[in-house]
Design a protein around this nucleic acid. Structure first.
Lengths: 127, 127
DNA sequence: ATACAACTTCAAGTTAACTTGAAGTCAAGA
DNA sequence: TCTTGACTTCAAGTTAACTTGAAGTTGTAT
């Protein structure tokens, strides 16, 4: 299937301007145009965009995402090297998740504390 | 112990200007000053900064971090209301974790693919 | 007493990642 | 044919999160 930029915007949640920006930054090198100049997107493009969104949410900068793709696309590195790069990204993301888990733990502690307070006394002030 | 801003900068890896900025944004409301006006930091402040760095690394904005602290600190809400706020905040963080898990899954898929490729053929090009 | 390092504030500058706006092109329908 | 809506480019504007620079203050060493 082919999609217009507005279709893709609705499918991905990205603003059309953001999609154009990503193309401009080299994140969508295989994007095709009609004779009129209008962009058209394939399912592969959608998949790539979805992956971009994922990496973005995981905290990678556009530059890093671009590097990731560059790395994926080039054939002058060994597979081991590429696997290594992915593993590195993965462990970065894992540590991010860890931080968030810690945050949730802290919040849980507070809630437990408040819950206990509610069940025993009734002065509303500290923590 | 007490520390100067340069001490804290070395301990945390944050630039002094960043620490001042965090104070200005309300992330360090309990920060004390000497009579001269110079900031001095306690171990509690360091702990708070470490927590801030963790949340930042996890992708929270300064506004979000500030809200997190505000929830913890304010006494003008009922306990139920505060618990509610915590739960909401928690579910936000949970969905962030979810995104990151998805990203890891994608990376794992890529790695599996590369691994298989390595074990069977040897042409180096796609994905 | 004076120099110097380390701090201070405040305003302006920077970078990433977009967004907005102006001005123009193109294809389809009345 | 003309209008309308969806697209295009390009330049300038915006926001977050800092950084940099200028100008001033303080505490300590010579």
């Amino acid at each position: 299937m082919n999609y217009t930029i507005t279709n893709v915007s609705k499918m991905t949640g990205l603003a059309p301007s953001a999609i154009r920006f990503y193309e401009q930054e080299g994140l969508l090198p295989y994007l095709q145009r009609k004779s009129s100049g209008t962009r058209f997107f394939t399912d592969d493009d959608i998949e790539r965009l979805t992956f971009i969104i994922g990496l973005k949410d995981a905290g990678l900068t556009i530059r890093e995402i671009q590097e990731c793709f560059t790395f994926c696309d080039r054939g002058d590195e060994t597979i081991d090297k590429r696997i290594q790069l992915f593993q590195k990204h993965k462990s970065n993301i894992r540590s991010k998740i860890c931080e968030l888990e810690k945050c949730i733990q802290r919040i849980d502690d507070k809630v437990t504390f408040l819950q206990q307070k509610k069940n025993t006394s009734s002065t509303i002030s500290d923590i």
